[in-house]
Design a protein around this nucleic acid. Sequence first.
RNA 1: UCUCGAGUAGCUCAGCCGGUUAGAGCAUCUGACUGUUAAUCAGAGGGUCGCUGGUUCGAGCCCAGCCUCGAGAGCCA
Length: 504
Amino acid sequence: MNMYVVFIRKARQSSFLFLDLLTMKRTKIKDLLISAEFGQRVTVKGWVRTFRNNQFIAINDGSSINNIQAVVDFEATDPALLKRITTGAAVSVTGILTESLGKGQQVELKADTVEILGDCDAEKYPLQPKKHSLEFLREIAHLRFRTNTFNAVFKVRNALSFAIHQFFQERGFVYMHSPIITGSDAEGAGEMFRVTTIDFDNVPRNEDGSVNFKEDFFGKSTNLTVSGQLEGELAALAFGEIYTFGPTFRAENSNTTRHLAEFWMIEPEMAFYELDDNMDLAEDLLKYVIKYALEHCKEELEFLKNRLLEEEKQKPQAERSDLDLISKLNFCLDNSFERVTYTEAIDILKSSKPNQKKQFKYLIDNWGADLQSEHERFLVEKHFKKPVILTDYPADIKAFYMKQNDVDAQGHSTVRAMDILFPGIGEIVGGSQREENLEKLERRMAEMHIPAEEMSWFLDTRRFGTVPHSGFGLGFERLVLFVTGMTNIRDVIPFPRTPKNAEF
RNA sequence: UCUCGAGUAGCUCAGCCGGUUAGAGCAUCUGACUGUUAAUCAGAGGGUCGCUGGUUCGAGCCCAGCCUCGAGAGCCA
């Protein structure tokens, strides 16, 4: 009730007529552009993209990447009103839907009533009807939604997000909300952001001078989650198959085009899945959501494809990709991901041209070396030319919870890990079969100096009815990067959080 | 965090070997035109050359430190 009163007051104060707001139905531009029902009187509400020749308003309401052109009879319109039709202004235009006389569009709106819902000072409005750099748009992230590129990017992001839920729901997975605030600091997935209500000007101290977290909000030291995996495992060992999809936080000082301090991650966890089942699921998921985007975001992907082609024209021939965006996505659907073990990958890399010719910055000579970006890129972009799943990594370079393989004939200790590498993105999925044997897990934790006491709740899964199980983490923004063809992760999340930047 | 590059008008950029009053296109404003497609044409306004210090008769340009941005690397999803 109160909200309704506030609404009426606000509406009365503003420049448009309150009655209009209630009586005039608006039609979405997306629907009008595919309509052939000429002669209808309709109302469109949106934002002015350009106002050409004192008579053509390109209006966008976000429903479509495309604008509708409203034609104003400037000789019969108050010049003061015409002056207020500026780029960025919010307008309500009513008129007759007609077949366009001009060449650039099928449909247009012969306007009889133009109402300015919200003025936009052209001298101050930063968006111009021209191409802006992504760097500049990043600085005005609150306004970049109003551009074609970001309309497309965030529509695709939305579709992918929905498709992920649909994929898992169709398969009976339970969507589980893992905690955002976590009390365990042993997950080992990276540097954490501290969560506290401690007054920094008056920090409670223990006798030895250390901070007394008993005085803090939770009575202990707490952080933002770096992974929901451990909690996911608890649920999986009751529901069978679960997934999480939520924000994740890493306080790493990473300054790259593929890292964020706050990002979204999908973490399925499945009881009774071994590594092959895990890989099958991950590959199916990726293909399913890419297919969904191709089917549901045709216009957006077409736009992004052309945007990329334009961008590639600036590059030398050798650096251009052989496939356009949509072909690349289809190629991904039509081919199975290459599955190779770490050991096989090392052999391929050892005998590879860049290794022989010493073109790698880090040359591959021994089994056990961690693969660098350049090696992953070689495997994916040069050698196999498609997504690659690397499995069975050396135990020493992977997390404590991964299932240990038997030591092989060469004496190598490996774990049942799997990383999915995508062209241009690198690691998009990281996962493993989990070590379900309590003794083996505890031994590994001791070796890696992980305090078992704090992890007792996690180890209970192995104490009480343990089963083989697997899971993985999919970096959502990296997926959006791949599908949209964008190259900087800061351009596929509305408000990126990176070192030295938490604007908006 | 490391390496490299950049920071000049609202945006994108030029600015020669250090030399007088720092330029262009687009945007904005004014006028003209009126079926345009980032409309066009004419004119006008718009600058703490990232910041601080130094070298010099003189610094947008050279040097040092810092800040910010970008690309790559590390860490990872």
